[in-house]
Design a protein around this nucleic acid. Structure first.
Lengths: 236, 236
DNA sequence: ACGCGATAAATCGTACATTGTTTATGGGGA
DNA sequence: TCCCCATAAACAATGTACGATTTATCGCGT
């Protein structure tokens, strides 16, 4: 294990932080953040010359960044009409958390069978920090929570699945940053994490997997409820 | 339903055939095929100027195509050192078919609960063609088999999951194109398809889901065995 | 009010400059 | 003679600039 000393929520190792161009904090990352964080509205046009001006580059890097984002599914293209922001709406979130419900249990099952003493210690350490923070700093909670699950999925042999999880995680993290956790959800998170650690210690792969399914499901529902509420408020 | 009259294995509706640039058969598609079909060796360098010359364009379209492929995971990038072909090796195939085993049962379960009379008729029609062809034309079999499953997943509400399935499917299809079906596998495919139709008719969602899991698992194993055999032959 | 043509704007392709990387070469030392 | 390293030249990625073609916008005439 070694690091994870302080938490910046890094991707599982081996997953290239894609955006490595040369631009200090690559255009790709900047535009991507703007989309995920909601600074760029859903379906908004992404005009190459504008973006280039805004980021102080020429058009070519922008064009490439947009293609990259297209490949990852964050922007849509229509030939000769350019790019638009793919809306990160309720459907989008529902889709990816449902996929999580299917995938994460499998990753967890593997982890339970492969977990070392150090792994478990690391989980408990992070869980300690989570409880210490106790949702006071929600951003910190988000980072810690991500780290918690990263410990479990980091070394899974199925890099595709881990990568998929990480991509989805980033989206959910950004979306949920705009909401607060309900009391019920806070309690559930702490309880489920503790329970999960217990299952890992006991080597109960099946129980752990089932628990994670509920955990992800609950998390997804929570986010969706918030989105629904906000949309309702905005509309009515 | 309507079409599916003759089989060209088209993506589930709503999934943009990404590659729509302007180039007749977009660079993206061409390079992608070359990778999937194995015409470009694993880890081979993708030199922009070469590709541009080869396809008779300037470098910019190539650069954009490569970024798109990067986003989709078919090429890897190292800053200032360009792109390489991501190897479609046994690990790659194992990863994606394992994800299939997790996702497809869920898609199937939904389909069983939503299937119309027309859907079932369509499945039976395609199954008829599959049995009629009886693996004589393996390419045709591949197309038909894809169509069979597309009927089931086409209208699923989770577009992400459907898209993911399609992407993986395309890879597996290309890889397995180089192999022949063993007799055992042929028998299993026909049997499982028939059994599946029966489950759909009876509305047995759980049984259908479980069957699909086995079906995908078997298909994956089959492909992997072939790859292993070929690699062994090549090495030893 | 409704098409229709001119004008503006943006995409897409080409050509070029710059910067970083890789490879070839040659000289000095053991 | 052979190895090692510095140095230079070839090469390729990345960024800039521009022209061509398509699409969108707006005002005019009927």
């Amino acid at each position: 294990m070694a690091e994870t000393s302080d938490f910046k929520a890094e991707p599982p190792e081996g997953i290239d932080a894609l955006g490595a161009s040369s631009e200090g904090a690559s255009l790709y990352q900047l535009i991507r953040e703007d989309i995920i964080e909601g600074r760029l509205a859903a379906n908004e046009r992404l005009v190459v010359t504008d973006l280039a001006r805004r980021h102080g580059t020429s058009t070519n890097p922008v064009r490439e960044a947009l293609q990259l984002l297209r490949g990852e599914g964050f922007v849509t293209f229509v030939p000769n009409r350019g790019a638009r922001v793919r809306p990160i709406d309720q459907d989008f979130v529902r889709d990816i958390y449902e996929i999580g419900v299917l995938i994460e249990p499998a990753l967890t099952r593997w982890f339970v069978n492969m977990a070392t003493v150090e792994d478990i210690a690391e989980l408990e350490r992070i869980q300690g920090l989570i409880e210490e923070n106790n949702f006071a700093d929600t951003l910190r909670h988000s980072e810690l929570d991500t780290a918690f699950h990263t410990v479990m999925y980091q070394r899974h042999y199925n890099r595709h699945a881990a990568e998929l999880w990480w991509k989805h995680r980033e989206v959910l993290r950004a979306v949920s940053r705009r909401f607060n956790f309900t009391l019920a959800r806070r309690a559930a998170i702490l309880r489920e994490h503790r329970e999960l650690i217990a299952h890992v210690k006991a080597g109960n792969a099946d129980e752990a997997a089932e628990l994670i399914a509920r955990h992800v499901e609950g998390s997804g529902r929570h986010v969706l409820e918030h989105m629904r509420a906000r949309n309702a408020a905005r509309a009515g």
